[in-house]
Amino acid sequence: MASRIAARFAALRAEGRGALIPFLEAYDPDRATSMEILRGMPAAGADLIEIGMPFTDPMADGPIIQAAGQRGLKAGATLGGTLAMVREFRGQDDATPVILMGYLNPILSYGAERFAADAAAAGVDGLIVVDMPPEEAEVLAPHARAAGLDIIRLIAPTTDAARLPLVLNASSGFVYYVAITGITGTRSAAPEELEAAIPRIRAHTDLPICIGFGVRTPAQAAHAARVSDGAVVASALIDTLAKSLDAEGRATPDSVRRVLAQVAELAEAVRGAR
């Protein structure tokens, strides 16, 4: 059986458009709210969904996602709890691919083999482990492969020609192009930088390529989805959620609606991009 990720990109190719991949942080600001956002994303136009697994020390994330992770941890987020969210989501949606993004230590603490098996059983399709370059992937990659999970790798502007094949060979599902040398939610790449970068990667792989880091506006998402195979939007959505919270950091009646409205706006732009 083709994976949900491969099936979804094949369908999008047939449609002639790129993917919108919105991001949410598990348990941000509480389990129920993040579950409602997750449940609402496909109808709002999400083609794939990326869920952040909160970690105390997110080395590659800027202040917006750091704060989301801290809210999630305060609300009791664990890997087990995040997998339970995906399992619940699969009760209503068996087609939209779900990617988990996080850092290695909580996974090692959970047990890499058990995590891969439990994630696959919950309905997760792929993993992005930020601090696990191909050189260190032996701890998790064999277990992920055995469980049928894709390992989605980040390619950065600093990834040189010599290194590119090594990283691509260790990737499956799709390739995540980090548009800037920097952390999440800080700045955006210029359109011409992306237009130069994607063909460089395309020459080395048949995998779909998606762009993240600094994709904030509908126009940027549309452009990213046009020059590559998809746009990942994270900090801009988290920012909207954060601004909807009350003074104590709790969700308000408006929180879910505002985030999903933004997803819909992004989706519309991505769908109109070609």
Binding site: M59, D131, E136, A156, T158, T159, V178
Partner: peptide, 12 residues
């Protein structure tokens, strides 16, 4: 030990 860093830092 090892090199558990994000891809952006690996080349550095």
């Amino acid at each position: 030990g090892g090199r558990y860093v994000a891809e952006t830092l690996m080349p550095l």
